[in-house]
Design a protein around this nucleic acid. Structure first.
Length: 230
DNA sequence: GCGACAG
DNA sequence: ATCTTGTCGC
């Protein structure tokens, strides 16, 4: 377990955070297909908080994309760097997540984030931000809808419904990963196409609604938070 | 102005 | 995110 360090110049207020998003948004790469589903390694990242103590813990769990076997794990703990503000989640979660990713032995082929990428008010959600900062292909898989609604989708595993922006662009997709169960919300983050993102998500969730990567990362960061003594 | 609002 | 009991079902 490593200690989190707040990156130099990390925004301390909403106005600066918005400015950072506006600048970094131009660096997102959306014309790459992304890693072949079922190949290489995939990292899941998640964060847990203790707002009373002001402590945050992050975890990164890397699995083999084909077998879903855990290849490596890492955690990081430290102090909360930013409050939760819808639309600015990255500024709260990234310092911890970056610290956890940095301590991995080898870079994963894809990073799955808890939240959105393109399907964001300013098209620069957590997953896109992480991708730009690390250079790694990334996608967002959220548990709840954010600013974009969608129509009904079929009840079968693999059924989808587009998340559309005002201009009609499909910025994400509601994806049914388990029959008859509430869907997850997928969007491209960086260097990955939406189709690829959905394919990976489906392969990562053979048994439960959420990808194994985020399920494992969720458990691990909670354990790290409970063990933290800051 | 009033809600809605990833984690 | 986090606070929390029981309960229904495989």
């Amino acid at each position: 377990m490593t200690i989190i360090d707040i990156p130099e110049g990390w925004p301390a207020d909403e106005a600066r955070a918005l400015a950072v998003q506006d600048e970094l948004r131009a660096r997102v790469v959306l014309d790459e297909t992304g890693p072949e589903p079922g190949t290489g390694t995939v990292a899941g990242v998640d964060v847990a908080y203790d707002d009373v103590r002001g402590v945050v813990a992050a975890a990164a769990v890397v699995v083999d994309a084909r077998t879903l076997t855990v290849v490596e794990e890492s955690t990081a703990v430290g102090k909360v760097a930013f409050p939760y503000v819808p639309g600015l989640l990255a500024f709260r979660e990234l310092p911890a997540v970056l610290a956890a990713l940095r301590s991995l032995t080898r870079a994963p082929g894809l990073v799955v984030c808890d939240g959105y990428g393109r399907a964001h008010p300013r098209r620069f959600g957590l997953a896109s931000h992480l991708g730009v900062l690390t250079g790694l292909p990334s996608i967002g898989v959220a548990k709840n809808p954010f600013v974009f609604g969608h129509g009904e989708l079929g009840p079968h595993r693999g059924d989808t419904a587009p998340l559309r922006a005002d201009d009609g662009e499909e910025v994400g997709r509601a994806l049914r990963t388990q029959p008859g169960v509430k869907p997850v919300y997928v969007s491209a983050g960086h260097r990955t196409a939406l189709d690829t993102a959905c394919a990976h998500t489906l392969l990562l969730a053979p048994r439960y609604r959420l990808p194994e990567t985020t399920r494992r990362a969720d458990r691990l960061c909670r354990e790290a938070l409970a063990a933290a003594v800051l």
